[in-house]
């Protein structure tokens, strides 16, 4: 009987732990930069949603493409109209897993290098990608930062030759998200 009781307690603790293992953000930040000798373009999105499960190392992101803000209104319009086709493909997503989960102790404050692997979907095109970043654990808050680059051609984002000199072929993407336990 003791065994059953013990196992019940363990079970409840386990369930609780896994329920608490989900951390979420609704106002994560993703920005990108296109640098060419002709023009620098940058945009920022402060409405990124993401969930990370610290138990399994699974991590998902969803980004509304129309929520990227540019320095120039016309850039924003062209970004949505001509390049990303936001009416057809409103969301960009990432769904993946930490590949070095065992090296990260989510119960101990500290800064941990992290790598992630998974599927990125932009402009309706899915690509398998890997990226590295940093996970900072501070009490029950987790912050994740990462910088990686994507090639426009990989996601079939066409740039007409007329403006090709103004838009970089490879775009630098920065992720900065602060997570809190999901209730």
């Amino acid at each position: 009987m003791k065994k059953v009781l013990l196992s019940l307690i363990i079970c409840v603790l386990y369930l609780q732990a896994s329920a608490q293992a989900n951390y979420m953000t609704r106002n994560g930040q993703i920005s990108f930069f296109s640098k060419t000798s002709m023009e620098n373009i940058d945009a920022v999105n402060n409405e990124v949603t993401s969930i990370i499960n610290t138990g399994t190392g699974e991590i998902v992101y969803a980004v509304l493409v129309k929520s990227f803000r540019f320095e120039k209104a016309l850039m924003e319009e062209h970004f949505n109209e001509n390049y990303m086709e936001s009416d057809k493909f409103p969301k960009s997503t990432f769904s993946g897993k930490l590949t070095n989960l065992s090296a990260i102790d989510f119960k101990k404050n500290g800064s941990y290098p992290a790598t992630v692997e998974g599927d990125m979907t932009i402009h309706g095109i899915k690509q398998h990608v890997t990226a590295s970043g940093t996970i900072v654990v501070n009490g029950n808050k987790i912050s994740i930062t990462s910088t990686f680059s994507i090639k426009l051609a990989d996601y079939k984002i066409e740039v007409p030759s007329l403006v090709a000199e103004k838009i970089a072929e490879s775009i630098e993407v920065k992720v900065n998200c602060q997570y809190e336990p999901k209730s």
Binding site: C11, Y14, L15, S18, A19, N22, M24, R26, T49, S50, I51, N53, G55, T56, E58, I59, V60, Y61, A62, T93, S95
Partner: peptide, 22 residues
């Protein structure tokens, strides 16, 4: 078995959960 299968179910659909939240 029950415990672990529950959690596996929960983790399976993290993206669905995110969709619901957003």
């Amino acid at each position: 078995f029950l415990c672990t299968s529950f959690t596996v179910l929960a983790q399976d659909d993290l993206m669905k959960m995110l969709d619901e939240e957003t």
